[in-house]
Simulated scan of single mutants.
Amino acid sequence: MTTNTVPATAWHDAVAEAVSTHPWLAYVGAIDGAGERGQDPDIIVVCRVENHDGDDSTISTRVPRDHGTLDSVVDVLAGASWYEREIHDFFGVRFVGPGADHRPLLIHEAPKPPLRKDVVLAQRADTIWPGAADRAASTSRRLPAGVPDPATWQRIKDGENVADTEVIAAMTGRRPRGRRAASTSRTASRR
């Protein structure tokens, strides 16, 4: 098994090189790199190909979260079209070049790509979560995944433009480092 992380500009060539020795497509997918504190704003795109010996090769790259584009690999791996359309629907990465298919695959209209960590799962936020009653005495988080704390959710519903990093922090129960550092510097300047 080999793993190769390449810049976005080298994505197509790296996949084509891997396909020369590993001709079968296993998977093309994406991950939102925004961690618990929103420190990594990129979308990570991964392609895994295999050969007849069961050996596999994985190529990954990073694409900017906003208006990220990546060269399509459909001319090298025809089966990648479905995956590329899915990645565009769910993460917002646009594939360009020969063979790129820009038709929506599963989601025809959405304000934001739904699998990004900064997207609030609105239906969950407005529904009482059954686990909250079971864990009422617990000090652990009582909200389902994908739901920010009630104060942040109310601000979003009221139409306030809440920063993506703040939404992610409100869903994980942790505040971004930048905010804590900013509040600490304000406190220090008041002294």
Rank of each mutant, 00 (worst) to 15 (best):
S57M: 07
P114G: 06
T187E: 13
I128Y: 10
P148C: 02
A8I: 04
E160V: 03
A30I: 00
H102Q: 05
L106K: 03
R180N: 13
V46G: 07
V15F: 00
E17K: 13
T69F: 03
R180T: 11
E50H: 04
K117L: 13
V162I: 08
L70N: 00
T58Y: 14
D40Y: 03
E166N: 03
I59W: 06
A18F: 00
Q39G: 07
R190S: 12
D32K: 03
R180Y: 12
S57T: 11
T152V: 09
H52W: 15
R135I: 03
S81T: 12
C47Q: 02
K117C: 08
R191K: 15
Q154Y: 04
Q123I: 14
R174C: 10
A122L: 11
A125G: 14
L25H: 02
S189D: 13
A34M: 15
D40M: 02
S189R: 14
Y83T: 06
E109A: 00
K112M: 14
R135H: 09
V119K: 05
H108K: 12
H67M: 06
T139H: 15
T165V: 05
I168P: 09
Q123H: 07
A80N: 08
H88F: 07
R179D: 11
S81C: 09
S81I: 01
H12N: 09
W153A: 11
V167D: 07
D66P: 03
T127P: 09
R62V: 13
A136G: 13
N51F: 04
A122T: 09
V96Y: 03
S20P: 07
H102C: 10
I156E: 05
N161G: 08
A14F: 08
E17S: 06
Y27D: 13
S72Q: 02
R62K: 11
A8S: 12
I87M: 08
C47V: 01
P23L: 03
P150H: 10
A14T: 00
I128N: 11
R175F: 15
G99Q: 08
S183Q: 15
L115P: 02
G54L: 02
V63H: 02
V119P: 02
R174Y: 15
D149K: 13
P113V: 02
A151G: 12
R191V: 15
W24F: 06
A188T: 13
D75G: 01
T187W: 14
P144D: 04
G99S: 05
G146N: 01
S140H: 14
S60R: 15
T152K: 04
W24Q: 04
R155V: 02
G159L: 03
G159T: 01
H102K: 10
I59F: 00
F90A: 01
L115H: 07
S185M: 15
F90N: 05
P130E: 04
D13R: 05
W129V: 04
G146T: 09
T61R: 07
W153Y: 15
L77S: 01
I31E: 00
D53V: 10
D71N: 00
W24P: 11
D126F: 10
H108S: 01
L70D: 01
R177H: 14
V46C: 06
G97H: 09
R62M: 10
D13Y: 06
M1E: 09
G97A: 10
A163M: 14
R62N: 11
L106V: 14
A136Y: 12
R186A: 12
M1D: 12
G178L: 13
A169T: 10
D42L: 03
V6Q: 10
R142L: 15
R175E: 14
P113K: 04
D101V: 01
A26R: 14
